[in-house]
Simulated assay, not measured.
Amino acid sequence: MTTNIYLKNNFVFKVDWDMNNTTTYTYGAKIGSDVDTFSYSNPMMAQAVKIHTWYSQTSYTHQRFSPTLPLLKSGPNYTINSAYHAFPDKSIFTQIDFFNSYGQKIDNFITDSQQINFNFPDEATSYQINLVNASSQKLVFKSLLIFESTSDVTSYYFDVDRQLILSSNDTNKVVNISFNNCLNHLITMPRDLDINNTKVIVDPYLNFKMLDDILMNNKKELFDKIINYCKMLDSQMLNKKIIFSGYCLFDSVLAILISQLFPSSKVNVCLNFEKLLRLEKELSSSSIEMLLNMISEMYSNEKMG
């Protein structure tokens, strides 16, 4: 059975594993990274030791690094989704510590669940998230997602089983498929859409570096979740032609890439697409040229059709 968590807002904050050594327990550790994952192995590490810590508040003078967690407020419900694989299973705990304005810890909780729902304490002004060792042999980490959640039905929900953010509309009316914008650690979903005929599909773990890897190394498996969902939609669309639409640069690039796997589809990209694409620093020049050639070929095919 699918579990849905509704988003109160149209944005999600993504937290990556920052590479600052002062926040990671490195003694005896074997550490590696790939385009979409961070691996950590330390079989001799004692239990209950913190492997890694993220902070919402720091003193750069003393700690020499900046906060990596968003500021939260008391009252709303929050959800943290942790995307990682621990070996063996359940060998990593997540501990959240809450602090008051004097830096005193006022509350905390610890869990082995990767789906955490909580309220920010009234007296708290900052917090820390820790990954804690519980006899882990290896950890392969993607990201943490933090968003404000609600029990009400809203425009978007997080599908826990698929690990996708989806719009809540009836898929039988869908003509357009759109995606999300990605700006640093902030993932935003479109606000002003014709929600009746546009389905928004968001893989919150994708970013520009992964899109570059898809283009340069043909790693289409990196967006398998979106592809599989699009195929499911395509089978329900009663022979309608899919229109993949982008409203910003990131979703436009996704629209182009995914449309390649749906030969009869059409693509709409954002205004000033070529200009924005040439200015994007996280895409290689080769990837940019490939995308420009793809969109040029699409336009040529439309004219010929």
Rank of each mutant, 00 (worst) to 15 (best):
L211K: 04
T53L: 06
Y84R: 07
K275A: 13
L139S: 02
V49W: 09
V153F: 11
I243G: 05
S82T: 04
I96N: 01
L7K: 05
Q95V: 03
N268G: 04
C230E: 00
F147I: 02
S286F: 14
Y102H: 01
N239F: 15
N207H: 13
K225M: 11
L164E: 01
S285N: 09
F120G: 00
T22H: 13
N268R: 11
K73M: 01
I256E: 02
M210C: 11
N119L: 01
N301P: 12
A86N: 11
Y27T: 10
A83N: 13
K303W: 05
Q95P: 07
Y127I: 00
L7E: 03
T171R: 04
K173W: 11
N108R: 03
P67D: 00
V175T: 15
S285V: 08
S155D: 08
S66N: 15
L211H: 07
N10E: 12
V174K: 02
T79Q: 10
D36H: 15
M45E: 12
K225A: 03
I195C: 14
T61K: 05
D97L: 04
V153I: 12
N172G: 08
P88M: 14
N9Y: 07
E123G: 03
K142L: 06
Y6E: 01
Y40R: 01
H185Q: 12
T58S: 04
E282N: 08
S259I: 05
S168A: 10
M232N: 14
N217G: 12
Y6G: 04
L238N: 10
I214D: 00
G246N: 06
T24P: 13
T22P: 14
E274A: 10
N81L: 05
L186T: 14
M298H: 02
F223C: 05
L283R: 03
F244H: 02
A255S: 14
I195S: 12
F141R: 01
E221Q: 10
E302V: 06
Y127S: 00
V49M: 14
F93G: 03
F11Y: 07
G75T: 04
T23Y: 05
S56H: 00
Q137Y: 15
D112F: 15
V202G: 02
A86Q: 04
H85S: 09
F147E: 01
S296C: 09
D122K: 03
M216D: 07
K50H: 09
